[in-house]
């Protein structure tokens, strides 16, 4: 039960000719298609699953473009309406010398999503070729992506709360812009993309780089 952070040969269910359920961890013979315990669909460890990853990755990326191009918030302050895109908001904040918040917004809304795209793409590209040696760092990347993915939705919630709360007649009112939906979709797609990624691929050796059909 030690914590073996560094590489050591482990027998995977796949290598043992078995299929592990990704849902409950129960191990089944190789050709089973459904987990007998939890009823989940059993997926063989295969790069074929990467297709879903890529599909959602592209979808997320496409959604990310309007999410940045369109305004996220329409702010109406004393009659002057301003549409702020994510990047515009950051520039505004810098203009107001709110470097702290600007940095937070920049990191949370721009860096992290982009890093996520890069990370998922990297993992998806790399798992097909790489050796087992890369396994552990890749797992860390994967875990970070999966963990951070949900938290990107914070932006959408912030927009929702601001829009619902700041309704002070003509003094100040905030309405969500189309980018909010695009951003939410983008986050959702990246989440699906990351979920679709089969982390077992990280540990799969090069020798089984093609689906082991007997």
């Amino acid at each position: 039960m030690g914590r073996h952070r560094h590489e050591k040969a482990y027998l995977t269910a796949h290598d043992a000719g078995l299929t592990g359920c990704r849902q409950c961890g129960k191990v089944w013979p190789k050709d089973s298609t459904q987990c007998g315990r939890c009823g989940a669909h059993l997926q063989p460890v295969s790069t074929a699953s990467l297709q879903r990853v890529w599909a959602c990755w592209w979808a997320g990326l496409f959604c990310y473009i309007p999410a940045n191009a369109y305004p996220m918030l329409r702010t109406n302050m004393l009659g002057s309406e301003s549409n702020s895109t994510i990047m515009g908001g950051v520039i505004d904040l810098v203009g107001h010398h709110n470097y702290g918040i600007a940095l937070i917004v920049f990191v949370a809304s721009i860096c992290i999503p982009i890093a996520k795209f890069i990370a998922v793409a990297y993992l998806a590209l790399v798992v097909g070729k790489d050796k087992r040696a890369g396994g552990h760092p890749h797992l860390v990347i994967y875990e970070i992506v999966e963990f951070v993915g949900r938290w990107s939705m914070v932006d959408v919630f912030v927009v929702a709360i601001l829009s619902a709360l700041v309704q002070l007649g003509a003094i100040a009112s905030i309405h969500p812009g189309p980018a909010a939906a695009a951003f939410a979709l983008s986050v959702a797609f990246t989440m699906i993309s990351a979920q679709s990624f089969d982390p077992r691929l990280i540990w799969r050796g090069p020798k089984v780089s093609s689906p082991p059909h007997d």
Binding site: L78, G79, E81
Partner: peptide, 8 residues
């Protein structure tokens, strides 16, 4: 008019 914004 300006304050209230023509769009609105």
């Amino acid at each position: 008019r300006r304050m209230l914004g023509s769009e609105d």
